[in-house]
Simulated scan of single mutants.
Amino acid sequence: MNIGIFGANGRMGRRLVEVVLNDHESKLSGAYVRIGSSFIGIDAGDLAGSGQCGVRCEPFEKAQASNIDAMIDFTLPETLSTHLSWCVENKVALVIGTTGLTAEQHHQISEAGKSIPVLWAANFSIGVNVMLSLVRQAARVLESVADIEIIEAHHRHKLDAPSGTAMAIGEAIAGELNRDLTKCAIYGREGIEDPRQRETIGFSTIRGGDIVGEHTALFACEGERLEITHKASTRLTFASGAVNVAKWLKNQRAGSYTMHDYVKSRLG
């Protein structure tokens, strides 16, 4: 299984390189960075702290589709369109972990799915995807008695807020309750406000230090509260998940897939 990585110099890119190099079913066939990057020419294995692997970081424009079965993209929203176009043109499966995307960009992913297998996820942790099932169940049971809040924390360098995973949790809860998240979400509070409305879903964002990722769905009732929490201690969790998804995705027909599709396939 030949895997190429967009943004191999990034925090997640380096962890993806590390995972691929240590996975006996995968081969690192390309490590790509932006034009003019100071990382061009550096061995990707050295960059990931895994020792030289013989694959040097190259500008994306030098990607050779003949050597790649699937690409993995954890870069920035502004590069997504270019990466999608390249994968569609070259018939290469694409795994996307970039967050902070617009509705138009999600539409572009769906359109790409007409030509290639593509999977976008806010989080590639199996634990987080189990959490999404749990919060749906809790929301269904506690809808009439709980105020629902989502609290997330990440490292100081993370740009989008709330995180893609926090938004996925909110969408899961809102969908279960037949609510429109764009209308019921509250992103932070300040000053003197009207009393909280039951139908709203609140989001609180923390940014600091080197926090990898923590998410809590809080169901606050009178006299008790339920908290469903997931904490990640290493980015390798997400990188391993993305690589496993890439190995699965390359054998799928063209389509726009989700982590639910992947998890369901693993369960037989």
Rank of each mutant, 00 (worst) to 15 (best):
R189G: 02
K91Q: 14
T258D: 11
S38C: 06
C57E: 14
E58A: 14
K264T: 12
D69R: 07
R11C: 08
G175Q: 06
L84Y: 11
A242E: 02
G49L: 08
A239M: 01
A65K: 14
L80S: 00
S29L: 07
G213M: 04
S133D: 14
Q252R: 12
A185W: 04
R266E: 14
A220E: 13
W248H: 05
I150L: 01
C221L: 09
L94T: 07
A217R: 05
H260E: 15
T75F: 08
N67W: 13
M12D: 12
V118D: 08
S29N: 10
P59E: 14
L267P: 07
V17L: 05
E104Y: 04
N244R: 14
G268W: 14
I173H: 02
N9F: 06
L80A: 04
I169H: 03
W248M: 02
C184M: 10
N244E: 15
G100N: 01
S265T: 09
K264Q: 09
F39T: 13
A103S: 10
C87I: 04
Q105A: 00
D23V: 06
A246P: 08
R198I: 15
H107E: 15
G51C: 05
H154F: 09
E176D: 11
Q108K: 08
F6T: 12
D73W: 07
L177N: 03
A93C: 06
S81I: 07
G175E: 11
E149C: 14
L159K: 14
G223I: 00
R207Q: 00
K27E: 13
S163T: 05
G41P: 06
Q52P: 08
S265D: 10
C87W: 11
M1V: 12
G255T: 00
V19L: 02
T205E: 08
G36F: 06
K247T: 12
Q197E: 13
M71K: 08
A65D: 05
E224M: 15
R14I: 05
C221G: 04
P59N: 03
I42R: 09
S81N: 11
D23A: 00
T98L: 03
L76T: 12
G113L: 01
L21Q: 00
P117Y: 03
L267V: 10
A246E: 10
L267A: 12
Q197V: 13
H154I: 10
V135L: 02
E89K: 07
L249Y: 04
R207W: 00
N2C: 05
F124T: 15
I173Q: 00
S163Q: 01
T82E: 12
I5S: 06
Q252S: 10
S133H: 13
Q252F: 06
H83W: 02
H107S: 12
V92L: 05
G255H: 04
Q197D: 14
S125M: 01
E89I: 10
S204W: 07
T102E: 02
T98S: 03
K158R: 15
R196V: 10
D43R: 08
W86V: 06
E193G: 12
D23C: 03
T75D: 04
E190Y: 14
P59W: 04
D180T: 08
D180I: 09
V92K: 05
G241K: 01
A217T: 08
T205M: 10
V92I: 09
A65T: 08
E58K: 13
